[in-house]
Every structure is written in structure tokens, then in C-alpha cells.
């Protein structure tokens, strides 16, 4: 088709009739909004994380255990882990929506959701184990 000539509409249908039958978008706004909200929450959490990384750079396991045993650190870390992997799942889902078509879309989406959930749970359990470990200082 020649793109330069002015297009003409031969199909006599109203705008409503065109939209009908194409199907609703079903979801979209909630996904978009949750992506933004988790991003907003991750801004201060990332700032906190950078400070902690600077405190822990080159640390030995003992230092990390002591750090993770503090309830404030553990809470922030839990919030960071949950929101990071939630935001990751939302973002990667959009990539799947963009590039994976047809029958592969559903399995790919489910695989992503499962993987994100498991990695997130793994992170949460690791943080909880650090947080709830008996204090090495109290024992000494």
C-alpha cells in the first residue's frame, strides 16, 4: 500500500461497531498502577539498601549475621525483598506480553509468576533465618 496517498475509509462502520467484538482490554490499569506504586516504594528502600551495602562491603559472615539480627534491618530487608520481586514480576510480565505471542503466552506467564514467587519466598526465609537466629553476642 502506498503510504503517501490520503487513506479513504471504504468500510461503513461506526466507531462503536469497530470497537465491539475486539474484546475488552480486561486488565491494564491495575497492573500499570501497581508497577508505579511498587516503584515509588522502592525509591527510599533502595536508598537504605545503598547505605547498608556501604556498611557491609567486604564484611565477614559474622558481621552480616549481626546486621541481619537487628529487627529494623530485617524489616527493611523484608520490605525490600518483597517489593523488589513483586516489581520484577510486574515488569517481566510486560516483556512477556510484548514478545511472547500465541499459545506460549500463558505458560511463560505462569513460569514467571512461579519463579518470582519462589525467589521471593527464598529471600524472605533467608532474611527470617538471619533475623531469628540466636544472637551470637548474647551467647558469648
Amino acid at each position: 500500500m502506498n503510504a503517501s496517498h490520503t487513506p479513504r475509509i471504504d468500510v461503513m462502520r461506526s466507531q462503536l461497531a469497530r470497537a465491539r467484538g475486539l474484546g475488552s482490554a480486561k486488565t491494564g490499569v491495575d497492573h500499570w498502577w501497581l508497577e508505579r506504586m511498587s516503584a515509588v516504594a522502592l525509591v527510599p528502600l533502595s536508598g537504605w539498601f545503598v547505605l547498608q551495602v556501604l556498611r557491609l562491603a567486604g564484611a565477614e559472615q559474622q558481621d552480616v549475621v549481626e546486621w541481619g539480627g537487628k529487627p529494623a534491618n530485617a524489616s527493611m530487608l523484608l520490605a525490600l525483598m518483597v517489593l523488589t520481586f513483586y516489581h520484577m514480576q510486574l515488569g517481566l510480565q510486560v516483556i512477556i506480553d510484548d514478545y511472547v505471542h500465541g499459545k506460549a503466552h500463558l505458560p511463560a506467564s505462569l513460569l514467571l509468576k512461579g519463579a518470582a514467587l519462589l525467589i521471593g519466598l527464598f529471600a524472605v526465609i533467608a532474611v527470617l533465618k538471619l533475623a531469628l537466629a540466636p544472637s551470637t553476642k548474647a551467647g558469648a
Binding site: 559472615q61 552480616v64 549475621v65 541481619g68 530487608l77 525483598m81 525467589i119 527464598f122 529471600a123 533467608a126 532474611v127 533465618k129 538471619l130 537466629a133
Partner: peptide, 9 residues
């Protein structure tokens, strides 16, 4: 990074 956390715990 989660692997690092896990190793520490």
C-alpha cells in the same frame, strides 16, 4: 543477591 543472603544465613 538472594544467594548471598542465603549463604549468610
Amino acid at each position: 543477591g538472594v544467594c548471598w543472603l542465603n549463604a549468610a544465613s
